[in-house]
């Protein structure tokens, strides 16, 4: 079995484990990215803890996680259930809702920035011309994170819906028909048949959402670069800024370690749930 897994294992060691160990090590050094690293002990973590921007970035990661564990998941579940009940509309609707997923992130970001939120060239400008007083949410430090999240949700929820629909289609038709014969309406079917039927897929997607939420970078970097006034700063943009603008690779590595910590916690929860499920099924 080990021989069978060896190619994948070697690739993982080279491109995942080695960089991960190097990043972890870099967190304990002062390094500008080109010179000789100098041992710093826990100084990078101490400096990070003393920086209010780190805490606001961490808070934003939690807010982002909460948003993505609820809004796109609820939208996707309802859409998947609706498509399950309406097979004729499935192909057309799935194509439409999946489309944002295949558009490049940079393009999506620029579309929302210039054609939706811009007070000069976007929908916001049009609304202002027609009597609605709306400002650009990307320019407001208290709303910019939510505005970028809206862009990412538009990009993400269709994919999630397609995944949930595939899982729902694995549920036995007999079970659904039996529930209907027993008088279950859409909500009851959804609550007592569909959700329990896709539980493993749902849990996997929720766990992945937590991991991805602590790694979120592209949309925020493209649309707001973490601003204005650090309003949409997250750990990844915090780390990027330290590594590439401030020449402080050690501090960036420390932030990356915190990001990974949350990912590891989520993975541990997933493994624990798998073990629990296995124990219950045997």
């Amino acid at each position: 079995m080990w021989l069978f897994a060896l190619p994948a294992l070697l690739i993982n060691i080279c491109i995942i484990l080695v960089p991960a160990v190097l990043t972890f090590t870099a967190a304990f050094f002062m390094w500008d990215g080109v010179g000789t690293p100098a041992w710093a002990g826990l100084a990078n973590f101490q400096n990070m803890a003393a920086d209010p921007v780190f805490w606001s970035a961490l808070t934003n990661n939690f807010i982002w996680t909460a948003i993505f564990l609820t809004v796109p998941v609820c939208l996707a579940l309802v859409m998947a259930a609706a498509l399950l009940m309406a097979p004729k509309a499935r192909i057309v609707v799935q194509s439409i809702i999946f489309l944002p997923r295949i558009i490049a992130v940079a393009v999506t970001g620029r579309i929302f920035q210039g054609m939706i939120f811009s007070p000069v060239t976007g929908v916001v400008a049009w609304l202002n011309e027609h009597g609605f007083s709306i400002s650009d949410p990307l320019a407001d430090p208290d709303r910019s994170l939510y505005a970028v999240a809206a862009v990412d949700i538009w990009h993400w929820w269709g994919f999630l819906a397609v995944v949930f629909l595939s899982a729902m289609r694995q549920i036995s038709v007999d079970q659904i028909e039996a529930a209907r014969l027993d008088g279950a309406g859409f909500l009851a079917l959804f609550r007592y048949v569909l959700i329990p039927g896709i539980r493993p897929t749902l849990i996997l997607m929720l766990i992945l959402t937590v991991i991805w939420s602590f790694q979120v970078f592209e949309f925020i970097f493209i649309v707001t670069r973490g601003g204005p006034a650090y309003g949409s700063e997250v750990l990844a943009t915090f780390a990027y800024r330290h590594a590439f603008f401030e020449g402080d690779v050690g501090q960036a590595a420390a932030a990356a370690c915190v990001m990974s910590l949350f990912g590891l916690c989520a993975t541990a929860v997933y493994l624990w749930l798998q073990i629990t499920d296995d124990a219950q099924s045997t």
Partner: peptide
Amino acid sequence: PGATNSYLIEGIEQVWLNK
């Protein structure tokens, strides 16, 4: 220098936006 300049850029937005 790099970190000071990065803060000069980012931090002034906090001043202008009363943070």
